[in-house]
Design a protein around this nucleic acid. Structure first.
Length: 601
RNA sequence: GGUGUCGUAGCUCAGUCGGCUAGAGCGUUGCCCUGUCACGGCAGAGGUCGCGGGUUCGAGUCCCGUCGGCGCCGCCA
């Protein structure tokens, strides 16, 4: 090594030691006869004192080697802000290893540049402690997960990233195949089918920190390439997977966030989550639960509510504590908020802080009896606002109220930013109606019905429940999985219900069904959205902070400027323009079957 | 695809009701400074106000379009 010591490691006990340091000029304070330079390396910063002229020429981010001697700082000159603040290094030799041009963005922990410029010069952005620590934390998270899994005899196994288009809900990224013009690889949206094959293969316990690809639009917590901690186990029940999930999450939060998670982590059924929180990933850091009013308001003449009730739908409410104090403008703002979400509006009643009297446009439409008990029915006090949603589709109204609940918490500051609230959402429905009136798998078509519905799911597909579970942290879905179907007869019945013919099934997942002929073990698993997990542990607002070289919202990488056009030669060789044969076209891809993969981002 | 918001010096931003010869801090260049630690002082350079069009005597400011960053809806689990 060029250096003998890490800059950030020097302490008073090192005084008198001759050291060689190597790093970057973080900051310099030039007093003419004496020049202080904060020298930064991967371990931290230490002050170096120069009394020679040559240090005048140092500029920020020059890469330097310094020989010198560690000394206690003169009395009164210690800097308690720095771990190395008791000492300094009196330089005897300065070697400039490389110079730095004037910086396009400040390399300064206290100054945040815009996303675009940070990504374009990500190598400078990452010299700052915040962004650097986020990546280092992710590295530790990987180690912790691997340790927990290896302690439990899991095997880390890699699966292909050039594969066939597999049956999942999102758009595939496609790769042309030079050797077979007209045929394309797809990048995997997850290793779902491969990990199931590994169970057939008797690997019994598999995991992988797997890169996955989905060609969909971006969000703060979504990139087109992302990472799952992907896990599958044989001969297990749902509880075994949940136990393992808790062990992983427990170790991560204890070691990286200093937070001991109370176990077992609470479980809530999917239906309860929707009823109480209007979400399948409820943020349990605060209350503000939904109240169903379908029965309470039965017989109302207010058309919006009556229409939903008569249609066999749902009317419900959520309370904004102190919401009566909002101005007319703020209350109108809620209408815009609701419309931006595609709702017609958000009916509300405010309870007068003094008298408890119900006021607002909707109050006029409700009869005295309904108004009288309303506060008690929804748990509202004088001074609160009550928001209503009504729809023929129960879930639609619940989701609007659920979104309102999150917005209420945001505006009222109800979520403790230092709190961690975990839960499992279990017993998810197996199926939901698709646009054509048929059924589609909520999770994916290999998800097992639970014991109760194993023999009867065809009789009431809308009510059938699966062995499917998501783990939620502070309103973020950080992982999800299911117990899989391992019996051919059950799988056939599911395909039949989904309207997937034998030919279609053979075409889409034939290789899996073939494998399942040969004694597939009962198995199940889970996948964690690793970027989200690391984002939460890092306290970041976006998964971009825990990805070394993320892309912008437009799928653009400001650093490499990818994606780029290709040359005519590349285009020719890649076989992009090859005309598919008619027979191939009919069987290509997975179009027409909407099925989904593991529940993670 | 829809929508909100932002775009002014290398960076972070201010710029009021349309009157601007466009400012500040940091950075940068030169000089000074022996105990600073987001050092300090003096002097300087640095601008297609994202781009295009329009309204106006006059546009950074108003209007239309467009490009880009970010957030949200759709989409994605």
């Amino acid at each position: 090594m060029i250096r003998t010591h890490d800059a950030g490691s020097l302490r008073a006990t090192d005084a008198g030691s001759a050291v060689t340091l190597a790093g970057w000029v973080a900051r310099r304070r030039d007093h003419g006869g004496v020049i202080f330079v904060d020298l930064r390396d991967g371990s931290g910063v230490v002050q170096v004192v120069f009394r020679e002229e040559d240090a005048h020429h140092l500029r920020n981010e020059f890469c330097v080697r310094v020989d010198g001697e560690v000394a206690r700082r003169p009395a009164g000159n210690e800097n308690p802000e720095l771990p190395t603040g008791e000492v300094e290094v009196n330089a005897t030799v300065l070697e400039v290893l490389s110079e730095a041009a004037p910086l396009p963005l400040p390399v300064d922990d206290n100054i945040d540049a815009g996303d675009d410029i940070r990504l374009r010069h990500r190598y400078l952005d990452l010299r700052r402690s915040g962004p650097a620590n986020a990546l280092k934390l992710r590295s530790r998270a990987n180690q912790i997960a691997r340790r927990v899994l290896h302690d439990r005899d899991f095997n880390e196994i890699e699966t292909p990233t050039l594969t066939r288009s597999t049956p999942e809900g999102a758009r595939d990224f496609l790769v042309p195949v030079r050797l077979q013009p007209g045929s394309w690889y797809a990048l995997p949206q997850s290793p779902q089918l491969f990990k199931q094959l590994l169970m057939v293969a008797g690997m019994e316990r598999y995991y992988q920190i797997a890169r996955c690809y989905r060609d969909e639009d971006f969000r703060a917590d979504r990139q087109p390439e992302f990472t799952q901690l992907d896990i599958e186990m044989s001969f297990i029940t749902q509880d075994d997977v949940i136990d393992l999930g808790e062990a992983i999450v427990g170790a991560l939060w204890e070691e990286l966030a200093g937070h001991r998670i109370d176990r077992p982590i609470p479980r809530i059924t999917w239906h309860d989550a929707m009823a109480r929180y209007g979400s399948d990933k409820p943020d349990l850091r605060y209350g503000v639960e939904l109240t169903e009013l379908t029965d309470y308001l039965r017989g109302t003449e207010f058309r919006v509510f009556a229409g939903a009730i008569d249609a066999g739908g749902y009317v419900g409410a959520v309370v904004m504590p102190g919401g009566a104090a909002q101005s007319r403008k703020e209350l109108d703002g809620w209408q815009d908020w609701a419309k931006a979400r595609g709702a017609r509006g958000l009916a509300y009643v405010v309870l007068d802080a003094e008298t408890g009297e119900a006021r607002g446009p909707v109050a006029k439409n409700l009869n005295a009896g309904h108004l009288e008990g309303l506060g008690d029915a929804v748990g509202a006090k004088p001074g609160d606002a009550i928001f209503f949603a009504a729809a023929a589709e129960r879930r639609e109204a619940q989701e609007l109220l659920g979104a309102a609940r999150v917005e209420i918490a945001k505006r009222a500051g109800l979520a403790d930013p230092d709190a961690w609230a975990f839960c499992w959402v279990t017993d998810a429905p197996m199926f939901e109606k698709d646009d054509e009136g048929g059924w589609t798998a909520v999770h994916h078509p290999f998800t097992s019905p639970n014991a109760e519905w194993m023999d009867t799911f065809e009789e009431a597909p809308d009510r059938a429940l699966a062995y499917a579970y998501d783990i939620v942290c502070n309103g973020n879905e950080i992982g999800g999985g299911s117990v899989r179907i391992h019996r051919a007869s059950v799988q056939r019945r599911v395909f039949t219900l989904l309207g997937i013919s034998d030919e279609e099934a053979a075409d889409k997942f034939g290789f899996l069904l073939e494998a399942f002929k040969y004694g597939p073990p009962p198995h199940g698993g889970i996948a964690f959205g690793w970027d989200r997990v690391c984002m939460l542990l890092a306290g970041a607002d976006s998964i971009r902070e825990v990805i070394a070289f993320p892309k912008t919202r437009g799928g653009y990488d400001p650093l490499t400027t990818a994606p780029t056009p290709i040359t005519a030669q590349q285009r020719l060789e890649a076989g992009i323009d090859a005309k598919p044969k008619a027979a191939q076209a009919a069987h290509a891809g997975t179009a027409g079957v909407a099925v989904h993969v593991e529940h993670t981002p």
